[in-house]
């Protein structure tokens, strides 16, 4: 292994990891930091389960290497809630019944969060486009769309 120190901001806190610089962010979050809220569904960018925010934008942590993360800000699903209240997006997913097995859900929540940050009042089409890269095998997406709409409403209050 060729390791080196990589520094970045993870969920608001500065962290330093000693890892191979070409390890993916997903590998480091899960296998090194054991921060398992971020899910590994395919490691190919096809499913969106590993979505995190990199400097506020939704990206695949499976297609981001540590060298690209250096000095940047990463937010994972654990960071949305922090120690306190769950985020409005998280609550909306819970309340609309959009969560079944839930393995895809952290990715959906992060993609939704990025959408609402960039566009607080998305149209139905905007929602579908923003989530088109997140696969869910349980829900048929109906309640996921409802959840996003609910989050929009709640956030607007």
């Amino acid at each position: 292994m060729r390791r080196r120190v990589v520094r970045f901001i993870l969920n608001g806190e500065e962290v330093e990891v000693y890892v191979p610089p070409a390890f993916t962010l997903l590998e480091v979050l899960r296998d090194v930091l054991h921060l398992t809220g971020t899910k590994d569904g395919c490691s190919d960018g096809d499913c969106g389960a590993c979505t995190v925010l990199l400097d506020g934008k939704a990206v695949h942590s499976c297609l981001t290497i540590m060298a690209q993360v250096e000095g940047r800000e990463v937010t994972t699903v654990e960071g949305l809630a922090g120690d306190g209240e769950p985020d409005v997006v998280q609550k909306a997913y819970v309340e609309t019944g959009a969560i079944q097995c839930g393995y895809c859900i952290p990715g959906f929540i992060m993609a939704t969060k990025a959408l609402l940050t960039a566009n607080p009042s998305p149209s139905e089409d905007d929602i579908l486009e923003a989530l088109r890269g997140n696969l869910c095998r349980c829900t048929g997406y109906v309640k996921i769309v409802e959840a996003v709409k609910k989050a929009v409403e709640e956030a607007g209050r």
Binding site: G45, T51, L54, A58, V59, L63, T64, G133
Partner: peptide
């Protein structure tokens, strides 16, 4: 091109 996650990167 792919998804939003892909387009962002």
């Amino acid at each position: 091109i792919g998804s939003i996650q892909i387009m962002n990167k």
